[in-house]
Write a protein that binds this DNA or RNA. Structure first.
Lengths: 197, 197
DNA sequence: GTATTATCTTGAACGCTGTTCAATTATTTT
DNA sequence: AAAATAATTGAACAGCGTTCAAGATAATAC
């Protein structure tokens, strides 16, 4: 085992190691001993820093969502002058692109399930508010805040479902990006038509 | 431990035990020793019947999907004389209803992830074809088979995403059925408008 | 009815997991 | 330099899926 890492930065090192493992091998490989081996410390040290493995996973997943949020924000910025449909489509494609590029990290966010009795921490849910805000900010001004919120959640959820089932290959034989893009187009098309009415 | 079960029916007993455990305690509780205890046999017997635990889980999940398919089929039948929007909405509500009623069994279907190298068996994917067929059969006749297929997959995926994220409470504080129904309504509304154009 | 063969069943044991905690080492304070 | 505090360690524990030699049971042969 390598030399001890500099003091006080164990937490950051562990989070970085967790992200590397997630990206390279997926959620199942994100194990206590794997983290310890990667940062060069004892397994027990993990529990001096985090309450349990779930806490570390939640932090890593939260970072993934933050990363995704930034990319979506950029996609929105890039289409600032476009039509509403173009903006919504850019967000949807951005989501698909992220999921396809960082599949393992992105899957980990939804694969990880807390025990039923454990509640999702508030700070975690808070972290994904920007995702919905991105969508809501594209919706027309005549809508009420509640209406925007409902619509944003609907669009996000629907797009997520399309991307999830496409990448999981449970419904289809293999992931077909072009086909998935068509599906997102269908979704956005319908939404825009509804908004105009 | 109780007396040995009648011979030759071990497989069925184990599947039944698996479904009971899924319904009562969720996927995480579906463990080799739990099954053995419930049917009153040794742990090893499980591996005389199934190759591994994944196989049993896939079978149990497949049954859940079959059950869901039947309910959706009934929902479609019940609205046979209604408008297209009514039919699609009945299917969507039926899906939500099933997920809300049989949450743990339904969640197990999507929580369970095979190791990356393991392929989803063909018979498993085959089992969910009826789900999509239900939707496709409601779509207008002027659409091509490919168009129907794409649209059906899109609607199913989108509705699934809406239901999943609502019941997982990752996006929102608590599950609000009325709100979720409104979201499904928005989705179907948009789809129908697109179909008319 | 007995001997032989084939099949099914068993549960201890293996390697893996997350987690704990007394003992050790390192750091800070006096 | 000594005492007090804090951080780190890794063997040990219970639980997981899985294996497999041994034993129990059923089927077949004579």
């Amino acid at each position: 085992m390598a030399k001890s890492p500099p003091r006080g930065e164990l937490k950051d090192l562990m989070i970085a190691a967790a992200e590397e493992i997630l990206a390279a091998e997926g959620l199942k490989a994100l194990q206590a001993r794997a983290i310890a081996a990667k940062v060069g410390c004892a397994v027990g040290s993990l529990y001096n820093v985090f309450g349990d493995i779930d806490e570390l996973i939640l932090i890593a997943n939260s970072r993934t969502l933050t990363h995704l949020g930034k990319l979506l924000s950029q996609a929105k910025e890039r289409t600032k002058t476009g039509t509403q449909e173009e903006q919504l489509l850019a967000l949807a494609y951005g989501y698909l692109d992220f999921a396809a590029r960082h599949t393992r990290r992105w899957k980990a966010v939804f694969e990880h399930v807390l025990a039923e009795e454990k509640a999702v921490p508030a700070w975690y849910r808070e972290g994904q508010r920007p995702l919905l805000a991105n969508i809501a900010s594209v919706l027309p001004d005549w809508m009420t805040p509640d209406g925007k919120s409902l619509m944003a959640q609907t669009l996000f959820s629907a797009a997520h479902g399309i991307v999830v089932l496409a990448l999981d290959r449970k419904l289809v034989d293999e992931f077909d990006r072009g086909r998935t893009e068509k599906q997102l187009q269908l979704l956005v098309e319908g939404a825009v038509r509804s908004l105009r009415a």
